[in-house]
Write a protein that binds this DNA or RNA. Structure first.
Lengths: 161, 161
DNA sequence: CGGCATATGTTACTATATAACATTCTTCGC
DNA sequence: GCGAAGAATGTTATATAGTAACATATGCCG
């Protein structure tokens, strides 16, 4: 698993696969991937970055939607609650999920240089928070795990400068 | 280390100790713990909860400060950047640090029942995000680790209802 | 077709956070 | 002590993020 967005990684391919996966999920579960929702998802998939709701809104306008804030937020609600998109809490921003459908409580690496976001396959029950929670009987329902820093490429750039 | 805020835990004592620790730190490092800053810290220490900036603002008013938003945010900036307070990203809210001064990238358990927040002693370099970061050469500069759920007491309550 | 559920359009508003500039307070060299 | 420089606070205005509430349209099913 060195296939993150930061190294050799076929953007177009991953994008198409994710969209197909979401289509399949929606068909299977009787969900409606309407035009607004699909557009929001596509925008996020294309950028592979964390975008704010108002960035999405601008893109939606560019694509010809009538776009008041609730439009974006409703699409995000749908995508979030079905696991097709995740929120990056430290930025109040949103990214497309890389493994749509597979239920997971994801972790992220966020590059402050290029803003690319890599999603980690899964959080680990051996992680220190989880261990601590078990020890004291705290029932974890949701986790937020986000690491901000520099990806290899941006680190090189910064060192040269 | 079962001494979290969720079990037997001497509120008043921990509060006093934290304040003393901050005083000591400020003296040692030539920082000014001015009245506004001290009040914000006290408010947070007393509640042991994550409070929003505007909650703090209200409390400040109650204590006789002139209080426009920048007042609260500036005090928070000071306390955050010196490690006396942490931000709970998933709530846009702030908690007092339990071990002020000791540099640490903390993790949290946040009870959705009583809103109490427990700070975890330290994040672990063996945690899955950290391992993944090392593997791909991602330089982590800041981590956000937050687990939301139910503390033992609130879990019991919910089961009874 | 009619009626229900779901989705979208629209207005207005709440909550969170910051920019910019004026004023006051501290500290420190003289 | 006095005055200048830097730090902290006061104040106004505004940016950014998110939601409530209600009207309208669309898809689905009997």
């Amino acid at each position: 698993m060195t296939d993150t967005i930061f190294d050799g990684h076929d953007h177009g391919r991953c994008q198409g696969m994710a969209l197909d996966a979401v289509d399949a999920q929606c068909a299977a579960r009787g969900l409606r991937l309407t035009p607004v929702r699909r557009d929001v998802l596509e925008i996020l998939l294309k950028s592979h970055r964390a975008l704010g709701a108002y960035d999405l809104l601008d893109e939606l306008k560019a694509r010809g939607h009538k776009a008041q804030p609730p439009v974006a937020y409703r699409a995000l609600d749908f995508l979030l609650s079905n696991g097709f998109v995740h929120k990056i809490e430290q930025r109040n921003a949103y990214v497309a999920c890389c493994q749509p459908g597979k239920a997971h409580a994801p972790g992220f690496m966020i590059c402050r240089g290029c803003d690319l976001v890599a999603e980690l396959p899964s959080p680990d029950p051996q992680d220190s928070v989880m261990v601590a929670a078990r020890q004291i009987g705290f029932a974890v329902e949701r986790t937020v795990v986000e690491a901000e820093g520099l990806c290899p490429a941006c680190k090189r750039e910064e060192e040269e400068a």
